[in-house]
């Protein structure tokens, strides 16, 4: 993993704007840098799990937007993913739809805690603060029978020790709160994690945007509204590499793996999945 990280970090030197364009034989420029966090994504992949291999399609709108806070005068690095959906067939047919999934990181050159004494005291706080939110994550597994799982909302307050000045590197860790509903044959079951789960969200992208690594993990306890305490953990790791561009729109090779511990489906199963596939990332910005 360390080697992979070093490879990504050194995949391309810091490039100027001109370095993101090459000239063809006629002298016409074409883009060779892309933003991995931006574009309309449409892809297909092979999804491998203990039940065998299945085909999957996925789609979503990714928006990366940096902005400067008017009220605080510091930059925000924001990643938004809208209407992300994945549908897979095979023996364990199912789909997931996520209305919104995003991270908003506010970067300070020198983080601090203000103690409001008569003369304000500034205590060093070497972290950026990130808000990670996910709204409306629905999972339906047809092979489990009637029912679905809906995570109505999840919000995490993450601390980022890397405090990167670019949108290309981030590492946020912190508590998160979640509300989820599982509706099965026996009715609805509501669970809430009142900041009793730990969320990790990390990403690393090459300067030219051709390679990207993203990892996320979640572990902790949630409480049943009626009864019960449930421990769950899950981890996702994804690597993507632009392999070609069609009409200047990048086509990306994606390799991913995930493990869920007592969190998959209505029955809170433990399971692993791995996938490999291609995706077109259209209408995105270029670096």
């Amino acid at each position: 993993m360390l080697g992979l990280v070093l490879l990504l970090a050194s995949a391309a030197p810091d490039t100027a704007v001109d370095a993101c364009q090459a000239l063809d034989s006629r002298g016409e420029p074409y883009p060779i840098c892309f933003d991995p966090g931006d574009g309309l994504v449409l892809g297909t992949r092979a999804r491998i799990s203990s039940a065998g291999m299945a085909r999957a399609v996925r789609t979503g709108v990714h928006i990366r937007a940096g902005r400067s806070s008017r009220s605080k005068g510091s930059p925000w690095f924001n990643n938004h993913r809208l209407m992300t959906a994945e549908l897979w067939d095979g023996a364990q047919r199912g789909f997931t739809v996520t209305a919104y999934d995003g991270t908003l990181r506010r970067h300070l050159e020198e983080g601090f805690i203000l103690l409001p004494t008569a003369r304000p005291v500034r205590v060093p706080f070497p972290f950026d603060v990130t808000v990670a939110a996910r709204l409306g994550h629905l999972e339906r597994r047809f092979w489990e029978g009637a029912g679905w799982t809906l995570e109505t909302g999840r919000v995490g307050l993450l601390l980022d020790p890397l405090r990167s000045e670019t949108e290309r590197v981030w590492l946020g860790v912190g508590p998160s709160a979640t509300h989820a509903v599982r509706r099965g044959r026996d009715g609805e079951q509501h669970t809430v994690a009142p900041f009793t789960e730990l969320l990790l969200d990390a990403g690393l992208e090459s300067a030219d945007g051709l390679s990207a690594l993203r990892a996320s993990a979640l572990a902790g306890w949630s409480l049943g509204i009626e009864r019960g305490v449930y421990f769950r953990a899950r981890a996702d790791l994804g690597l993507e590499r632009v392999v070609l561009a069609v009409a200047d729109q990048p086509v990306v090779l994606q390799v991913a793996g995930a493990y869920a511990h007592r969190d998959a489906g209505l029955a809170r199963r433990s399971e692993w999945t791995a996938s490999v596939g291609l995706a077109l990332r259209a209408l995105g910005t270029r670096r």
Binding site: K72, I113, L114
Partner: peptide
Amino acid sequence: VILLAINDQ
């Protein structure tokens, strides 16, 4: 009452 502010929050 505001106890403290973390990165101006």
